[in-house]
């Protein structure tokens, strides 16, 4: 097997790992925004989820309990956002920013108070984490050229959350386009008055979507602290919630393109990791900061118009108020 092919496989494998938290957050944003609730608080929800997972898994060495804690913490934050933006008809951006600030501050303070490690949670043993799963027939597949290598390097050997994230994409598509709830969800993000006059509750649908967003952000957070890493680190989401939001726009609020967009950002991240310290002919060594900035530069370039017209759900960000004639 050629070295270049091996290199590509490793990059793709790494891109998948890096794109998983983006994908969870992006799909979370998709549910929320398709229902008409802007979710700038993906970052904060993932962060509080990551912290809860790390904290619980360090106390009880069971990753599933960690995941449950992450989901509960994230859903709690989602409900705060839902209460502010659905029930109280507040400004959704302000509420989202508040979620982010709160999560960032709370995780640092609680982490320090509980574990005394400067905001980190204790290093997790292997049995408290989601470990990599080796899929069946890996040994047999090794002998198959090309496809076998793809199976071994790229498809096999991820944690259960990676497979879950991938499964969420077709599932989301199906929910959105083939179920009654999905039809209503898409309708409430476009024209809530139409949903209201059809005899459906706008608030109930939007709360449902916001809670689903909370669950998915919890998965994303748990992946960061108890699958990808072995514990929570202060501000470990590092803007992933915002990149996910960019990917959501890039994907024009559709699930399948969301997978592509998240993978692209993940790939960029993987490449950035790989070319650190590499000396390029003619340019020399590129500063680490410049490489780390690549995903963000791509985001700006893409959003500045390389993706064509991205029409958001029409009612996104607008609190629903029955107009009084």
């Amino acid at each position: 097997m050629s070295e270049a092919f091996q290199l590509i496989l490793l990059a793709v494998d790494s891109a998948i790992r890096l794109s998983v938290p983006l994908l969870f957050a992006c799909l979370a944003g998709l549910y929320s925004e398709r229902s008409g609730v802007v979710d700038i608080g993906l970052e904060g929800k993932m962060l509080i989820g990551a912290f809860a997972a790390g904290a619980v898994a360090s106390l009880v060495p069971n990753p599933w309990l960690g995941l449950l804690a992450a989901v509960m913490a994230s859903v709690l934050f989602a409900l705060v956002h839902g209460f502010a933006s659905i029930s109280q008809r507040g400004n959704q951006i302000v509420s989202g920013v508040a979620i982010n600030v709160l999560a960032s501050g709370l995780t640092a303070i609680l982490g320090n108070a509980w574990f005394g490690q400067g905001g980190r949670t204790p290093q997790l043993p292997s049995n408290a984490r989601f470990n990599e799963i080796t899929l069946p027939f890996v040994e047999a597949a090794r002998s198959v050229p090309v496809l076998g290598a793809i199976y071994v390097e790229v498809i096999s050997g991820h944690s259960v959350l990676v497979y879950l994230a991938m499964a969420m994409v077709p599932l989301t598509w199906f929910v959105l386009y083939r179920t009654s709830w999905g039809l209503r969800l898409r309708a409430v993000g476009e024209n809530p008055a139409a949903v209201d006059t059809a005899g459906l509750s706008v608030a109930r649908l939007r709360y449902g979507a916001v809670i689903v967003a909370g669950i998915l952000c919890g998965f994303g957070g748990a992946y960061l602290s108890i699958a990808q890493s072995a514990g929570f680190i202060t501000d470990m989401t590092a803007g992933k919630g915002f990149i996910a939001l960019a990917a959501l726009i890039f994907a024009k609020w559709r699930p399948l393109p969301a997978l592509g967009a998240c993978f692209l950002f993940g790939l960029l991240d993987a490449v950035a990791l790989r070319i650190q310290g590499v000396s390029f002919p003619g340019i020399g060594q590129v500063p680490v900061q410049a490489i780390q900035a690549l995903p963000y530069i791509l985001t700006v370039v893409l959003l500045a118009g390389f993706i064509g017209k991205a029409t958001p759900p029409r009612a996104v960000g607008v609190p629903y108020l029955k107009d009084r004639s």
Binding site: R178, S180, W181, R186, A187, A194, A198, R314
Partner: peptide
Amino acid sequence: MLVETFTVVENVMLGAEGGVFT
């Protein structure tokens, strides 16, 4: 009170989809 991005059928069935699946 119509959802502009929906088809006629989708608009008409909204709220009366008759089951979990559409």
